[in-house]
Write a protein that binds this DNA or RNA. Structure first.
Length: 281
DNA sequence: AAACATACTCGAATTCGCTG
DNA sequence: CAGCGAATTCGAGTATGTTT
């Protein structure tokens, strides 16, 4: 029976630099587990992230077991009792790190990690690369390396947020074929005239059903969604270009610049010109 | 003078309540 | 649930005032 092999293991030294960066990597490593490897702990500082390179493992949080397969990552709230182990038939190989930070616990709550600690990525290979780069840094210790580690953990957190955000949005938007088609059409032609009949046709539903769909998927009415979308584009154009406000109004689907100004102020709290001034340096 | 903002108004958009 | 008409809200245009 193959035994657990510790391929890499780090105890970074922080010396007098603790607290200079958002994230502190407390420990990290790379292990290839044997079938009997098992970790069971009550309470250690920080948060632990286990990325499964190959094989399969099981993590237990709040008494519930969750399978972790290749390309997935488990986020363990290690301040409370937790455990992890490989599955016997195909023991996992993992990259792991333990991180401390002021805000991770709150983020954990927002991302409902306790209910589902396992994250699936659109591009797991990127996450693996990120972790390997992070481990490479830990060979040495310097202020610059601390900064680089901070950046890597930050990128990892971004990947975790994206993974969960996409999953939260998907069911509502993607399950309805017509709504998906409608969104695509609006993204391509948001500067054209849209009314409720046209939206309903593009979505292939009745008017009443259109409102229900948007309410469920976005929590707003179709035109409110369209307005917010257009306003976001307008803000971008105001900052990125020197075009007159009236041209931008037309470009984002408001043929009447006057009305556009009014809407913009209601939306952004500033008139278009004031907004542009406040955003230019 | 041109570009932009605001007040006011009317009709379209949205919601509501009901029915099949 | 989905559709329909009535009730209500709110969007969009016009006219007019304000800033650059």
């Amino acid at each position: 029976m193959p035994q657990t092999r510790i391929l890499r293991s780090y105890f970074p030294v922080h010396e007098g630099w603790l607290g200079l960066f958002a994230y502190q990597v407390l420990r990290a490593g790379h292990i290839q587990t044997g079938p009997d490897h098992r970790i069971e702990r009550q309470d250690v500082p920080g948060h632990e992230f286990l990325f499964c390179i190959r094989g399969e493992g099981v993590v237990t949080v709040r008494g519930r077991a969750h399978a972790v397969r290749a390309g997935e990552m488990a986020w363990l709230p290690v301040r409370e009792p937790h455990a992890h182990r490989p599955v016997r038939e195909d023991p996992w190989e993992i990259l792991w790190l333990r991180v401390d930070s002021a805000n991770l616990s709150r983020l954990m709550a927002v991302l409902t990690v306790h209910d589902d600690p396992v994250f699936h990525f659109a591009h797991p290979e990127d996450v693996e690369t990120l972790l390997i780069e992070l481990l490479d840094h830990l060979d040495r210790s310097s202020l610059a390396i601390q900064a680089a580690c901070d950046r890597h953990v930050s990128a990892l957190v971004e990947a975790l947020v994206e993974a969960r955000e996409n999953r939260l949005l998907e069911p509502e938007v993607a399950t309805h074929k017509g709504l998906g088609d409608l969104m695509a059409q609006i993204h391509a032609h948001y500067n054209e005239h849209w009314d409720i009949d046209k939206l309903a046709n593009a979505c292939r539903v009745s008017k009443a059903q259109l409102f229900r769909l948007f309410q469920t998927a976005f929590g707003k009415t179709p035109l409110a969604w369209l307005r917010d979308y257009r306003m976001a584009q307008a803000k971008r154009l105001l900052v990125e270009t020197d075009d007159p406000v009236s041209s931008i109004a037309i470009a984002v689907g408001y043929p009447d610049p006057l009305y556009f100004s009014r809407e913009f102020k209601k939306h952004a709290g500033l008139s278009p010109r004031a907004f542009r001034a406040s955003e230019s340096w």
